[in-house]
Design a protein around this nucleic acid. Structure first.
Lengths: 330, 330
DNA sequence: CTGAAAGCGCTTACAG
DNA sequence: CTGAAAGCGCTTACAG
């Protein structure tokens, strides 16, 4: 900026005015400044600008996800980006891999860059470390799972209700032995979906058989083992509910390997690409992914804009998509 | 930092030393500083730090992709993030939606934040606008497609060769009419893959029938229309090569709708989830996605570290995965 | 080992 | 309408 001022033979304050589009600059001076900017290829340093500005706004936000490559989260990312871009805000993204200490490290690294807001898909079980950042002005929203030991805006799907609805549907079709597979039991989403499963059994006056409930399936191999065990049972299930997209696809592989994919009913949580082209087409509880992302971003920007109302919890409805696999009779 | 210094009753320079982990601070002073930091919840402002540092390193990079939600790019993103995180570098990501002016706007917005490096999947056809940024010290790498009117490191798959290899395989199985479907003809990847298709035909002494080549398929509807036209031809193809993952899945839907999915051979460029569970399992040319991302990130950090050697062009090999659909006989 | 002064690139607050 | 001075939060360069 100093060089531009020197070349245009004006003060740096005048260059600043031109760069910021202030109208109170003499046309001739403005022209000289623009020429100098063009000759030097000058571009304002936005971080230096933010440092000095009264509002200290960096026009950037941070995303701490489990994995930016997870298709569900990649869509959430995109939905957030759309809202941010409309406001001229740039987006940092990072993957915490379900590691609480990494989540914390990444979130605080973003804060050290003085982002305006942070959206977290929590891996950790204690988010009190963010309280000070929020007190310092950070806007904060949680998606997919709620925060722990911290009160903040949260956007969730109706996990329990949607699962109960899907499981009840299978029970009403006559299934009496319905298996339930989910990932790490300490995850909020796994707990809620398991609760929904139990609610449906109660509503249908069916007793829960612990042998049919398999949690902590953290990878495809453990899913495969669990499914094989279920179907080696004296009284094997006739239907399955899978609590997450990776578990659903792993289960589909095993059902195919066992040759029972056309006789066992299955509904999965999360929609996925090509579910409709499989044999049978796979019924799912579909989350409204873009709505989750859009809502989270809008809550965040409302806070950035100064909203100090009590924390909100927004529940985004899911949709049961019946494609065939969930409607197989016992 | 000033408040910390006041509370610890030291100079801000001493606080700076402690925060930066310099060992030349008296243990007692360091302890007082640490206490003050804890009491105030102080965290250094990394952007202010970068502004003043001699090297002006921001420890952040920018990614301008077509769409962060595209599964192929989401994996590239993750592979880059892994390399960046190992160096303590944070990652901005943005989607340019194949819009050249948006690509430019986003890239320059990142530059205005003084990122250390930029990785671009180009949408535009003129990247000379980045020359000045690079002269100003920006490290620059292109992935998936090369830059235009700018010389810079580039990481590509072996598009033409892989396509030629796959198409030649179908020809050797006896197919004489092989259709080719790809997206916008001005895209480098579409051109290269079409070239590979033509190379294979030449190598097999087959004449190209323009009626079998369908480009500019920008959405599923246009793919569906194109496939239906191909199979309404007096001499319909007996095999297809689809030039991109979204085109492959759209084509699979139409083949299924036409009831010919078990009689038409098909190989798609790009692997995708569940390809092995479809009927028939889908053969693909799989890009080495994590290698593309990792290589791009490593080239970028080499430049950030001061590598001034001539621009490199790295070609990452692909893999033909034969699952069944590509091996169907005419 | 410690700190006072200067300055990174910019904007604020104010005087002319 | 224009600019000189001060300062955002930090590090550099230097003196003690």
């Amino acid at each position: 900026m100093r060089e531009v001022a020197a070349l245009a033979d004006v003060s740096i304050k005048t260059v600043s005015r031109v760069v910021n589009g202030e109208r109170t600059v003499d046309a001739d001076l403005a022209r000289r400044v623009h020429e100098a900017i063009g000759m030097l290829g000058y571009r304002r340093d936005d971080s230096a600008s933010a440092l000095r500005r009264a509002d200290r706004v960096s026009s950037s936000i941070g995303l701490v996800f489990e994995d930016v490559a997870n298709p569900f989260l990649a869509y959430v990312h995109r939905a957030i980006e759309n809202v941010a871009r409309a406001r001229g805000v740039l987006t940092f993204a990072a993957s915490a891999d379900e590691r609480p200490e990494l989540e914390r490290e990444l979130a605080l690294a973003f804060c050290a860059r003085r982002i305006d807001g942070l959206i977290v898909v929590p891996a950790g079980t204690d988010h009190s470390y963010l309280a000070r950042e929020r007190d310092a002005g950070l806007a904060l929203v949680f998606v997919d799972r709620p925060p722990a030991f911290l009160d903040a805006d949260t956007v969730l799907s109706d996990n329990a209700q949607a699962t109960a609805n899907a499981v009840r549907g299978m029970a009403e079709r006559g299934h009496r032995r319905i298996g339930f597979l989910c990932d790490r039991a300490e995850l909020y989403t796994a707990q809620e979906r398991l609760q929904g499963y139990r609610d449906a059994l109660s509503a249908c006056r069916m007793a829960e058989d612990p042998a049919l409930v398999r949690a902590n399936l953290a990878n495809p191999a453990s899913v495969d083992a669990a499914v094989r065990e279920l179907f080696a049972l004296p009284e094997a299930p006739t239907a399955l509910f899978t609590g997450q997209n990776l578990i659903t696809t792993a289960t589909l592989h095993t059902l195919r390997a066992l040759g029972i994919h056309n006789s066992i009913a299955i509904i999965g949580f999360d929609d996925f690409e090509l579910a409709d082209l499989l044999d049978p087409p796979v019924s799912v509880v579909a989350q409204n992914v873009s709505e989750l992302g859009r809502t989270a971003a809008e809550l965040l920007f409302a806070r950035i804009d100064g909203d100090t109302s009590p924390s909100k919890r927004v529940v985004v409805p899911t949709t049961l998509i019946e494609r065939g696999s969930g409607e197989i009779a016992p």
